[in-house]
């Protein structure tokens, strides 16, 4: 039982880590792009609508795929006034519940987003501004994909907290 859970948790976590490490570079791309737009406009009065729209396209992709990678790297925020005083197994139980709930929410939002993307795809939605980036449904399609990846991360976290519950207590076995 434990090895199976371990395998699933590690596999899921690995997928999220790989996707996240690639997506992370969108942040650097964003810095360079916005700086380029600012400087080229100031120095050469050069700018295009498409490059300006690309700014928030990059931010959107980073924000979406950052969710799962952030959790993968332990960036969740919680109020730990009571949590910090709880025994380890109770903490693991709370983490298990949290991970399951996160998984459910992520799947529900994934499902909700699909209709949203279809609506955009059915009319070949583009930018309302001439010269803007076309195929807006591609950006919108990043939403269900990112929430599905978030669900995978939640599976990994479920597995990790299950392992923490199933494994013998560190105090009793390791000494």
């Amino acid at each position: 039982m434990i090895p199976v859970i371990e395998k699933i948790a590690n596999g899921a976590s690995g997928i999220v880590r790989h996707i996240g490490r690639i997506a992370a570079w969108s942040g650097l791309a964003l810095v360079l792009l916005v700086a380029f737009n600012v400087l080229s406009r100031y120095l050469f009065s050069y700018g295009t609508v498409a490059l300006q729209e690309a700014e928030w396209h990059l931010m959107a992709v980073g924000a979406l795929f950052g969710m799962s990678y952030g959790l993968n790297q332990g960036a969740e925020v919680r109020v730990d006034i009571l949590y910090a005083r709880m025994p380890a197994r109770l903490q693991a139980l709370i983490n298990l519940i949290s991970a399951l709930l996160m998984c459910a929410v992520a799947l529900i939002i994934t499902w909700l987003c699909i209709a949203y993307v279809q609506s955009s795809y059915s009319i070949n939605e583009g930018s309302p501004d001439p010269g803007g980036l076309g195929h807006r449904y591609v950006l919108k399609a990043a939403m269900p994909v990112a929430f599905a990846v978030l669900a995978i991360q939640a599976v990994a976290m479920t597995g990790e907290s299950l392992l923490a519950l199933l494994r013998p207590r560190p105090g009793t076995s390791s000494s």
Binding site: A24, G62, G66, M67, Y69, G70, A75, E76
Partner: peptide, 11 residues
Amino acid sequence: AFITSAMVFLI
């Protein structure tokens, strides 16, 4: 930077 931004966007 990606992780920290993600924390804010997640909320």
